[in-house]
Nucleic acid binder design. Sequence first.
DNA 1: ATGTAAGCGAGACGGTACGTCCAGTCTTTGG
DNA 2: CCAAAGACTGGACGTACCGTCTCGCTTACAT
Lengths: 198, 198, 198, 198
Amino acid sequence: MTELKSRGRHRSDESERAILTATLHLLKQQPLRDITIEAIAREAGVGKVTIYRWWPSKAYVALDAFSKTMNKTISVPDTGNGENDLVELLRLTMNFYSSTGQMFSEFLAECKNDPQFAIVFRERFLKPRREASREVLERAINRGEIDSAVDREVVLDMIFGPMVFRLMAGHGPLNRKEAATMISTLFRGIENRSSKAR
Amino acid sequence: MTELKSRGRHRSDESERAILTATLHLLKQQPLRDITIEAIAREAGVGKVTIYRWWPSKAYVALDAFSKTMNKTISVPDTGNGENDLVELLRLTMNFYSSTGQMFSEFLAECKNDPQFAIVFRERFLKPRREASREVLERAINRGEIDSAVDREVVLDMIFGPMVFRLMAGHGPLNRKEAATMISTLFRGIENRSSKAR
Amino acid sequence: MTELKSRGRHRSDESERAILTATLHLLKQQPLRDITIEAIAREAGVGKVTIYRWWPSKAYVALDAFSKTMNKTISVPDTGNGENDLVELLRLTMNFYSSTGQMFSEFLAECKNDPQFAIVFRERFLKPRREASREVLERAINRGEIDSAVDREVVLDMIFGPMVFRLMAGHGPLNRKEAATMISTLFRGIENRSSKAR
Amino acid sequence: MTELKSRGRHRSDESERAILTATLHLLKQQPLRDITIEAIAREAGVGKVTIYRWWPSKAYVALDAFSKTMNKTISVPDTGNGENDLVELLRLTMNFYSSTGQMFSEFLAECKNDPQFAIVFRERFLKPRREASREVLERAINRGEIDSAVDREVVLDMIFGPMVFRLMAGHGPLNRKEAATMISTLFRGIENRSSKAR
DNA sequence: ATGTAAGCGAGACGGTACGTCCAGTCTTTGG
DNA sequence: CCAAAGACTGGACGTACCGTCTCGCTTACAT
């Protein structure tokens, strides 16, 4: 019944905290790609082996470090109007990803290099945010504002996909106005209905 | 009128070709991240300096190498129906990016690490494809199939953004059916119009 | 009182031995100038960094490697006759330096390029041999064979200087007969005493 | 009999001068070992090939450059007293070699690496100075100051050898006083004659 | 006078080594 | 038994020169 503690020294919470803090600190100064395990260990005052023991690669460390920040920033708008909610949600997400610099893009890039990381990233990072967004969507559907026949997954990607694209390629702006245009376009569609009336 | 040739030995076309070929060959075996300048030089039978002389980083080499392939694959559908054209365009693009593995994602990631590369990438890689897509869009607008008031840039990103997102995060499928759903959703919009009729 | 052992892994004796052995091996085949740190590392099966960590330049490595050989070859003649002793000492030294090829000359050249190395070289290489020679000299002085008023340092350089000069410029032979002539000339002097007697 | 002039453009005196001047200039700042053909070409505003065409290695260039300086500095003392002459000659030589920094030592070192250079160096550099010294020596012999039976070559090396040794290893001073002691020791010898009288 | 042969500067080329950095592993001391 | 410290092999980095090889251009002899 008593949880048997293993012999010897146990995992040091202090070290873990130091590593994540150091990683966050370094991420503020340079892209993940330019950060090295050695630099993290040095900054954290920790042996390299301690990092290798608990994380498979620096991307996982960065994800852990980033998660600590992120969880505090999740917020789901609920104004009673679906379109408003989605615009607001998109705007908040834009702000968050833009402010955290290239982190999001770098995680996405890492997904392609390390399929195992991709799984963890989707589960730990994308899924919670997607669930929150799905909730907003579902609310609007239930209120009858959105066609209940829509493919939820596709719609979610049509909400965030354009933002992701611009975030990464940097070929277009990301602001409140663009967010509104995107959501509005998504609601109304691009079909020329007036011509059909003819 | 006569182009003044610089003094000294001129750039070796043979070396350039060998470098790009070697790079393409390596890219088929491993992600850009794991390719080294030394490996390219070795494979191409070329001095490292020759690479450094003409390209700022391996990302530029890869982009040049990739461009040679890509230009042969551009194709703009024109079936007479805008929606069909866009579905086909999206499907072709999906195929192309999926088949070239992680290249596209890696270029996007590099954009965040090297803003100078981002400019080149957009100009040389994205722009031509975007122009082709814009053409398809414009044709549909002229035919009266699409509302002429739409924000072209936003629409283009709503066509390709969801694909980009899925391509990178790998959280959803990319196939003909999904392409059709996406374009259909974009045309019709998600708004519940029947409820409004009430 | 107890020597405090530093933390972490200690210097690998095995690597050190491998490096010095490899260096000696290479020195038998080519002049120090043509030897590279990379070649030593390769031959020793050792990382370059391990060499850089413990030696400032390849000259120091070579000196260490050479010292191992040299110490076994020191031998101080003591026949009871000072002139014989010095001839023998000079002959032995000639043989040793000639057989070790250009090593000695290369160390001397390095002294001019790296003053820090010069200090080490004099301390570790020249001093022990000079002390041994000085001993031979002192014995002869005590036996009354050599004028006790002579400048020991100058005499030592007059014993070995001519050999060093020929060794380096190669303009004259270095053998037993020459050694005898040099020492004899040093003992008798070149002054024409018969003429003074007139 | 008539020297046949070759066709085509002739060797450029201007380039040769520029190369030697540049080399001298560089030699004042750093040891020969650290000077590169490229640096000489750059400094002289000359193509590398022009250097390779006329000199086998940078040592030859340096020797040529140095010779231009040296020839102006040869001077043979003739005071009527052999010992004085030799002291003065030794002192002048010390000054000259000390002032030209490590050049002399570097040439000596190069002799060991390049036997062909050794021949040229002895012929062009050492021989003229040795002839001049031999002349001084011969004069003193003819005047009856020096024993005519001495081995001229050995004596010449006993005059300059100690200086060469100290010059290279830097283990002792080189000044007027030391020069006098060396020559005096050479004249008188080190044998304890008073003890022999007993 | 004119062709042609060499020399020239510039500078790109394939290489080799530099000295540094990091990856990932291994070894030692110490809590 | 784990953590830090830190040395280890291995390999790529980006740079500097090597000696060679075109280039376009400039002499200057030989025809």
